[in-house]
Nucleic acid binder design. Structure first.
Lengths: 237, 237
DNA sequence: CAGTGGTCTAGACCACACG
DNA sequence: GTGTGGTCTAGACCACTGA
């Protein structure tokens, strides 16, 4: 009972995408809509699904492209490691861009998360991780100003706050408590990761603890579908 | 620079939702679109965002409602526990519906995951978990027919395959390897969870191992935003 | 500049829930 | 039946990219 063009369209579009070589460009939306005999709005609804599955990639002003197989960063969550370290292990080159380092005053959320008073000075580092010029993750770390200063960052930052703290050796880090969520991309995050608003992202909210129990880093991470495979081993109670 | 009505609309809608008591009904979409001076399509785009954040809930043929605070099931991922056990611990009543028990032959994916041959008989249990008559999770477990038969299920099933196997005591279970993803809801999953197509869901793909290393359960789980908070403690390497 | 995807409109019809 | 949200259309204009 395919009442809706959408079902047919999904399968037509799937066939079309499968028939094209990776990296190739799809016809423009108006052309494709006419060819598949649906309105552009309906076509775009279907394309949204395929983009969410990582099969195509749309870029404003450029076109829509078939995505080939990409290297996957597979990681167990029991250990906390930087993306750089993970990528290095599987021989994948990653780069850092859209780097922003700023000072700010602690708002209520950050103050609570970091266990400090509202208004204290914080250091915030945000950046995008790329593999092969595609953005794959957007990371925002917020630390108390006395733990990491903006000045120190300008000299030493290579992409990972964790690696920087480990290299420095102090404070002594113990573990991270990480909340795991699925969210739709906010306009800001969507822009950074070059995806559409409300596209599906895996989202980690993490608090990094020292051995003395202090929280020294409150971080938000956003991961694009397809480039990462996170897993966890769960013991039977 | 609010070039688009969308930005203004987001804030107008947020104000409206915040001003209404929980559980209350919003005006119909055509009425609201006229009131906020946007087209219905644009309004629905904005509403999609808010539904993704769990602030409203749309039900076809009924209306759109403000969602109040809901009890959150908070769980560490290190231990494998059934949703029933988790809910029970925080005093939350859950129920099971849309229960389907079926036999099928192993396709390639299931055969690989379960370490068996293609074509062997499997038992599949799918069901929806509700709290307070709202669906919150959709679970699909697939097991080899010799591990769990359809007949045995009809007598003993209470909602959790894990609890059933543990109650039975055999096979002896050790751990689960769980992949964690964020996905948009497929039409089937969307229908089961009473959400829209492509709505954001947290998705677990898990293989349950016995102490002897055999995989006895390959499961897919889909979790609605807002009802669960999953976290993991990550040791610094 | 031309061509692309991104947003928006106004209107229509369909599927569903409930009285 | 009535009213709701779900889908779809045809067309328009905006913002971005790259030649």
């Amino acid at each position: 009972m395919a009442h809706y063009p959408f079902r047919r369209l999904q399968s037509d579009l799937a066939d079309l995408i499968a028939s094209l070589p990776p990296e190739s460009k799809l016809p423009s939306e108006p052309a494709l809509a006419h060819q598949l005999r649906v309105s552009r709005a309906t076509l775009r609804e279907a394309m949204r699904s395929f983009e969410g599955q990582g099969l195509i990639r749309r870029r404003q002003g450029v076109g829509t492209f078939v995505v080939g197989q990409v290297p996957v960063i597979d990681s167990g969550l029991e250990l906390l490691e930087s993306i750089e370290k993970l990528a290095q292990r599987i021989g994948l080159a990653v780069s850092v861009g859209e780097l922003q380092i700023e000072e700010l005053s602690a708002g209520e959320d950050c103050a609570t998360a970091l266990g400090i008073s509202v208004g204290l000075q914080l250091t915030r580092i945000s950046r995008v991780i790329y593999t092969d010029s595609h953005p794959v993750a957007y990371l925002v770390d917020t630390l108390p100003g006395d733990v990491l200063s903006v000045d120190e960052l300008h000299d030493n930052f290579s992409g990972s706050v964790l690696d920087l703290l480990l290299r420095r050796g102090t404070p002594s880090l113990a573990y991270s408590r990480t909340d795991i969520k699925a969210i739709g991309a906010s306009p800001e995050v969507a822009r950074k990761l070059q995806v559409q608003r409300d596209d599906v992202l895996l989202h980690f909210v993490a608090s990094l603890y020292t051995t003395s129990g202090r929280v020294v880093d409150y971080s938000f991470s956003y991961f694009l579908h397809g480039y990462f495979r996170f897993h966890v081993v769960r013991r039977v109670g």
